[in-house]
Computed example of a mutant assay.
Amino acid sequence: MLAQEESQTQFYTWNGYQCAYEVREPNLTSQESPVALLLIHPIGVGLSRLFWDRFSQQWQGGNGAETIYNPDLLGCGETASPRVAYYPEDFAAPLKHLIENIIKKPVVIISQGASFPITLELLGMTASENIAGLILAGPPAWSIITQPKPERQQRWLWNLFNSPLGGLFYRYARRRQFLESFSVRQLFGKAEDVDQPWLDMLKAGSADMASRHAVFSFLAGFWRKNYESAIAQIKQPTLVLMGETASSISKDSQPEAPQKRIDQYCQTLPNGQGKILPGRNVLPYESTTAFTEACKEFLQQLRNF
């Protein structure tokens, strides 16, 4: 196997904010793909583009032909963290700039979990020819992605979080004991998969208190809209990947089997397909090999599309 290229952290400016991203070039440049991969990480305590490290390394180590662009979303990682309420379109706008001014080729977007609304907003503001396909890793329950949260409730929650009480809560939530307990209860299929690198990543990523603004925007539900019509308008081929023990973190969702969630998405998506993989809610991390292979199969389909 050829040696893997080290990722390089780079920066660009959007709307006066510094935005960070990594680039991983393919090992086999002679097989360069006409598309690139754009990764959208989940939002949560300590989460950033580092969420994708295992996937990126395996993709590159397996001689994937696509260049990977892995940005830190606004308020996360090394990207600026203004103290404002972030809506999905606020996360999406810097990605639009990244696609149009830096990547400059069609991308296949891979989004994790409830970052899917960011993808939907990005689709709405980007020329369709710039996005070749979508891969959704554990997207939200159908009852969540199609059910808006009342605006008054969103603002009330944000004001509560954006207070000294919110700061105390964030300090509590970034403790290693809480991070481990939450990961076992809500994210991973097997407790033993909540390993030291995962916990170290979350601990380091949450050290900056400014990282709480993106997390609180997510918890306030600013991403909660009825996206059914937007999903029905997606023309690009879309792959929905669900863990065999997938669950929903939101208390508002209704229990549903993984296959049912896939069916609900694919019945609405004009060009959708789905697959169940081992794991629960963080497939790129807990089931990296199976997830990577499913993505590669989909990319091969796109080449023949």
Rank of each mutant, 00 (worst) to 15 (best):
P148F: 04
R171C: 09
R155G: 02
R212P: 10
K190Y: 09
L134D: 10
P139D: 11
W156H: 07
F216Y: 15
F218T: 11
F161W: 11
V184F: 00
L168C: 13
G189Q: 12
Q177C: 01
R152V: 15
V184L: 02
V215R: 03
Q186D: 10
A207G: 02
L168M: 14
F178M: 09
V215W: 04
G189K: 03
W158D: 04
P140M: 13
F216E: 07
F178C: 01
P164T: 05
G189P: 07
R155V: 12
A141T: 11
S211N: 13
R176A: 12
K190A: 12
I145N: 10
R174E: 06
L136N: 02
S183Y: 05
I131Q: 06
W156D: 12
A141V: 06
P140H: 07
M209G: 02
K203Y: 14
S211R: 14
S217R: 06
P150G: 07
G133Q: 11
R174L: 07
R176T: 12
A137M: 09
K149S: 09
L179H: 00
D195F: 01
W198Y: 11
P150S: 11
D200G: 05
I145Q: 08
S217A: 12
H213N: 12
A132C: 13
G138A: 07
L165K: 08
S143G: 06
A210T: 13
R176G: 09
S211P: 01
F216I: 03
W198I: 02
A141C: 10
I144W: 05
G166C: 09
A173Y: 10
Y170S: 08
A191T: 10
